[in-house]
Computed example of a mutant assay.
Amino acid sequence: MKRILLACSAGMSTSLLVSKMKEAAQARGVDVEIWAVAQDKAPKDMEKADVLLIGPQMRFMKKKFSKTAEEVGIPLDVIDPMAYGRVDGEAVLNKALELIGD
């Protein structure tokens, strides 16, 4: 099972994206756990994740999260603003799986 963590300002704006990503994964038969947290919870939750995707409104936090991600050995990136705005679960899922190496 792949574990995908999304981080945003308050942990709520990505909830619809999480639902769309789960739908896309289920349609493709991909076994994933996807959840979203607020930025202050992200460092702790990174320990349980295989990848961290950051909401585009928080791209300035990438450098801060990079240190923790490196320590726990997971890749991270900022979610594409177009995919985020369109709530394109398929595109964001593809990016996460690409970063994981699957």
Rank of each mutant, 00 (worst) to 15 (best):
L93F: 09
V37F: 07
Q57C: 05
D88P: 02
N94Q: 12
L76I: 08
L6A: 03
C8A: 12
V30Y: 07
Q57E: 15
I100D: 03
M82K: 13
L93W: 07
S15Q: 13
D45V: 03
D50T: 06
G11V: 08
R86K: 10
E90D: 13
D50C: 04
L5F: 05
R59W: 09
D88T: 00
K95A: 11
A91W: 01
E90H: 05
M58F: 07
D40H: 12
V37Y: 03
A83M: 04
M21R: 00
M82V: 15
D102H: 11
W35S: 05
M1I: 02
E23W: 03
K20G: 11
L6M: 14
P81W: 07
K67A: 09
G55A: 14
P43M: 05
V87D: 00
L52C: 08
F65C: 01
G11D: 02
S13R: 13
D50P: 07
E71Y: 04
A69V: 03
K2I: 12
K2V: 11
G85I: 06
A24D: 08
W35I: 06
V32W: 01
D40Y: 12
Q57L: 14
I74E: 02
S15F: 09
L53F: 06
M82E: 13
K95F: 09
V78D: 00
V92K: 05
G29S: 06
A36G: 09
E47F: 07
A49K: 08
E70Q: 14
S66R: 05
E70K: 15
A96E: 14
L16A: 11
L76P: 03
P43D: 07
M82H: 10
I4C: 02
F60M: 09
I74D: 00
M58E: 03
P56W: 10
L93Y: 04
S15M: 13
S19R: 14
D31T: 01
K44P: 03
S9R: 11
K64Q: 02
K41Q: 10
V72M: 02
